[in-house]
Design a binder for these strands. Sequence first.
DNA 1: CTGAAAGCGCTAACAA
DNA 2: TTGTTAGCGCTTTCAG
Lengths: 342, 342
Amino acid sequence: MKFKSVTIKDIAKALSISKSTVARAFKDASDVSPATKTRVLEYAEKIHYRPSPAALNLKQGQSLSIGVVVSEVANTFFSEAIDGIESVAFNKGYSVIITQSHESHQREKANVVELCNHSIEGLLISLSCLTSDLSYLKEWQQKGLPIVLFDKISDDIETHKVKFDNYKSAFEATEQLIVQGYQKICHITALPFVSITKERLNGYKAALEKYNLPFKEDWVVHCKHENTTEEVEQALKLLLNCDDGPDAIFTASERTTIATFCLLSMLQPHKTLGFAGFSNNDLFNSLASKEIIIRQPAYEIGKLATELLFDIIESDAPNKNFETKVLQAEVLNKKYGNVIKT
Amino acid sequence: MKFKSVTIKDIAKALSISKSTVARAFKDASDVSPATKTRVLEYAEKIHYRPSPAALNLKQGQSLSIGVVVSEVANTFFSEAIDGIESVAFNKGYSVIITQSHESHQREKANVVELCNHSIEGLLISLSCLTSDLSYLKEWQQKGLPIVLFDKISDDIETHKVKFDNYKSAFEATEQLIVQGYQKICHITALPFVSITKERLNGYKAALEKYNLPFKEDWVVHCKHENTTEEVEQALKLLLNCDDGPDAIFTASERTTIATFCLLSMLQPHKTLGFAGFSNNDLFNSLASKEIIIRQPAYEIGKLATELLFDIIESDAPNKNFETKVLQAEVLNKKYGNVIKT
DNA sequence: CTGAAAGCGCTAACAA
DNA sequence: TTGTTAGCGCTTTCAG
């Protein structure tokens, strides 16, 4: 199946003029006679001429597309972020190529290679939890690829970054559980290598400390990506069945929040555990109960990251003034009926 | 900011051999001396040579990318579908360019143009609710673009299509409400132009008919895309406050389901309205109540549609045996604790 | 085994 | 106002 298209050559031949005249007719430069211009345009319309993107791309060295790497599209947070990314890119006339790392470092690297093989002009990436070695990204950057990190970022590379104030959000969520009267709060989170896990854990610890509550290593559960539900289930069974188990749970990622919440409603439908968690799932808005939900403005982070990316793409001088923007999340606490902008 | 890359020319010059020899070294053809081949490969590795995608594209006429148009990425159904799409494409070494129509016909068309300007080799599209004129798609198809329609499809174009059995799912959901004892079921749905709305409405009607319940035109609410929540709110207030209002609600799209569900829990937290709706939101799994949720295997539809697309892309003869695959949804009914494969 | 040359579709000097 | 030419990076005959 071939996509055999008409070229300026065909038009030139049909109209017995030269290729360059045809080319000129398409730019509304003044150096073409109105007559030939009309002829070309009309004929082009008639035979459905489209300039070859590949040729343009080769000639002008720009592809009008940017690449995105996220762990999972089917994660409310990322799909909202992609919405924000797409909105900015669309306005610039750019297309967005989406890839998923599924939290695998190998896949992440492979995605970046593939994206570069599609001549992207810039890269937006949220690192996988397992990525600690950023040298591959630095290589691309040295070759001139503009890169912006968002959400899951790293200090090991110098470029624009956008993140949330994870520490603060985690602190506040934990604090609110404490204010609600919970004293024994456990923490279910993702693998500890990446920025956001650490920051949230620190926020949690700091809140405990502020209220002189003990920090128990056993009450921090790190879940791998693949079997989140199974791991959460095992952990919950262990935690909830022991004598001095926790009276509240604080979950630190979309996946663990959903998994924990669903499991809790099955395992302990009548027990009134305290619950706080990070999630962008809209349905939480309807649960008129005491859950504390941290909602991160994902659309905004996508939008902002993309704007920063275009700053790099459109600047001619190699930028050196990189900045790290920090966005604030919303903590929804139904019990007090308020939305706290943290 | 330019992405100045090394070319075979650079390698050729550095090694004092010709471009063509360099090119040959990269294909493991037998017509290069092992010695030069090694030299080339090693030097290429050293200076981080990457073949120019644009040139390849121009020369070989393939871009290794496919385009996708959905209404909204930030819709669980579509983000899961994209996951399925990406999984197939990734295995084929293809990239996926995602665009959103936001249920606008204009935007949909613009997206297709932009995608074709990025030399996609195939198109996956779920039509916007406002699309009735498919002539623009047919033009692209005639120019050789392989197209597969999924989810929101149309009879007006001949190509592979994948859809859900919307009629059946809607019928069963309505029937289950009736079996639960509800007699006055209203229907909140999207705009009526597109396939799925009609089919679901028909399924709803058929179920009412089977049980000799009257169909009331007033109880069918069509919501536009932009202000779903506002429209649902207005409709609900009207419906629920009249004397002989409905005792159950059946919602026919992800957006209306979420909006209705959230609003209900605010407006009438204690009233026990029956509820059935289409949604892929995982949180519904945890709501141990009587809601009937229709979950469509979105990952599968994305996967299948992409496989069909590659069938067209990879076939040399212009295919004429187009087929329309129909997938079945799951109806989750917590009341009976079962999952009915419809 | 290797080099020279043409060409993919288009743009952009440079001539005419 | 138009045509000619060269070239973007790569592949691929066709000669050597």
